Amino acid sequence: MKHSSQFGLPKKRQKALDLLQKAFSDGDLDENDYENRLELAMKADSGEALKLVFSDFPDQYVHQITSSKVVGKPVTATKLVVHQNVDKLSLNILGGKNTVIHRLSEVPSRFFTIVGEQKISFSSEELTNAEASFEIVTVVGETKIDLRAHCLEGAVLNLRLTKVLGEVNIKVARGTRVVDQTKKVLSEYKYGLKSKSWKKRFMKTFSSDDEKNEIAQSNDAPTVNCTVILEGLCVLGTVNITEYDV
């Protein structure tokens, strides 16, 4: 029986996920096609199986999977795992709550929202080039997570979601990788792009060449090279990922 080699498969799979997200962000894949290919990539048990995910892509896509060159900015193989208070819980019932993650040992790592709204944002430099985990439980409510802070540069965030009849809305900056590994029951995962630089694009249209160059230099969109891994169970409702260019 022919043996299907899995040597190097984790690295090849990560490259495949990065390329799928890039193709989706560039508008080359629609949402359904992206999600179907993402599922196939996660289930692939060999490099040949991964190639099939890109069977109708230009040759350079398959070449990037099989080559040893890392696509984009790689995630550091070993990350500092920060100390968190795993027993501390933020419970929000029938109300609104806003939490800023600063000193990780002093703030919750578990967030429960029941028939309410909870907003979570980050300002801790401890997360730069480090790995952290958070549990997000949303029942008939909404949890908003803002991951655009520069302190998340090089970070790996593991978000374990339990969502029932609610929504989880996550804002990310350009450069962020989102890997969706959640199990879904009548639930949706949506990835969209949102631009706030329309004014500069309008000005660029009606400007001289010199002015266009000046506007282009000032319009470099900030990036946050962060990896977000979504796990857990989603029952009804939606997980929305929105990428911002500013």
Rank of each mutant, 00 (worst) to 15 (best):
residue 49 A to Y: 07
residue 71 V to H: 12
residue 83 H to Q: 12
residue 48 E to W: 04
residue 45 D to L: 13
residue 29 L to K: 02
residue 42 M to E: 10
residue 54 F to Y: 11
residue 33 D to V: 07
residue 72 G to R: 12
residue 48 E to V: 03
residue 69 K to L: 15
residue 52 L to Y: 00
residue 47 G to I: 08
residue 63 H to W: 02
residue 80 L to T: 12
residue 24 F to W: 11
residue 58 P to Y: 07
residue 66 T to A: 14
residue 38 L to G: 04
residue 26 D to K: 03
residue 82 V to C: 05
residue 24 F to P: 00
residue 37 R to F: 04
residue 46 S to P: 11
residue 80 L to I: 10
residue 37 R to M: 07
residue 81 V to P: 05
residue 83 H to N: 08
residue 31 E to P: 01
residue 34 Y to T: 02
residue 33 D to I: 11
residue 34 Y to V: 02
residue 30 D to I: 02
residue 43 K to V: 00
residue 76 T to C: 12
residue 55 S to G: 01
residue 31 E to R: 15
residue 62 V to F: 04
residue 70 V to R: 15
residue 75 V to K: 07
residue 53 V to R: 04
residue 36 N to K: 11
residue 66 T to N: 08
residue 64 Q to M: 15
residue 75 V to S: 06
residue 50 L to V: 10
residue 75 V to M: 05
residue 49 A to I: 06
residue 49 A to V: 13
residue 29 L to Q: 03
residue 25 S to F: 09
residue 57 F to C: 05
residue 51 K to N: 08
residue 63 H to R: 15
residue 64 Q to Y: 09
residue 47 G to D: 04
residue 28 D to E: 14
residue 54 F to S: 04
residue 31 E to N: 12
residue 31 E to H: 10
residue 74 P to V: 12
residue 53 V to M: 05
residue 61 Y to T: 09
residue 67 S to E: 11
residue 60 Q to A: 06
residue 44 A to S: 11
residue 77 A to Q: 12
residue 60 Q to E: 13
residue 71 V to F: 15
residue 35 E to L: 07
residue 46 S to V: 03
residue 66 T to L: 10
residue 45 D to W: 02
residue 43 K to E: 06
residue 41 A to M: 05
residue 52 L to N: 03
residue 75 V to G: 10
residue 73 K to Y: 13
residue 69 K to M: 14
residue 26 D to N: 05
residue 47 G to N: 13
residue 77 A to C: 03
residue 31 E to W: 00
residue 32 N to L: 13
residue 44 A to D: 01
residue 56 D to A: 13
residue 32 N to V: 11
residue 30 D to E: 00
residue 55 S to R: 05
residue 49 A to H: 05
residue 42 M to C: 08
residue 57 F to I: 04
residue 83 H to P: 00
residue 30 D to P: 03
residue 80 L to H: 13
residue 69 K to F: 09
residue 34 Y to D: 00
residue 39 E to C: 06
residue 37 R to V: 08
residue 43 K to D: 01
residue 48 E to S: 14
residue 47 G to R: 10
residue 59 D to F: 07
residue 81 V to A: 06
residue 61 Y to F: 15
residue 81 V to W: 07
residue 36 N to T: 09
residue 79 K to Y: 11
residue 73 K to Q: 11
residue 74 P to R: 15
residue 55 S to Y: 01
residue 37 R to W: 04
residue 36 N to S: 11
residue 71 V to T: 13
residue 65 I to T: 02
residue 50 L to N: 01
residue 76 T to Q: 15
residue 79 K to G: 09
residue 83 H to D: 01
residue 44 A to I: 04
residue 83 H to K: 13
residue 73 K to M: 15
residue 24 F to T: 01
residue 71 V to K: 04
residue 30 D to N: 14
residue 42 M to R: 13
residue 28 D to A: 06
residue 77 A to P: 01
residue 56 D to Q: 09
residue 66 T to D: 09
residue 80 L to G: 00
residue 52 L to G: 10
residue 53 V to S: 10
residue 33 D to S: 08
residue 40 L to F: 09
residue 33 D to Y: 05
residue 25 S to D: 06
residue 78 T to M: 06
residue 53 V to A: 10
residue 59 D to Y: 08
residue 38 L to D: 00
residue 29 L to C: 02
residue 59 D to W: 04
residue 81 V to L: 07
residue 72 G to V: 14
residue 44 A to T: 03
residue 56 D to R: 13
residue 51 K to S: 10
residue 73 K to P: 02
residue 81 V to Q: 08
residue 27 G to V: 07
residue 47 G to Y: 06
residue 82 V to R: 04
residue 73 K to N: 14
residue 67 S to M: 12
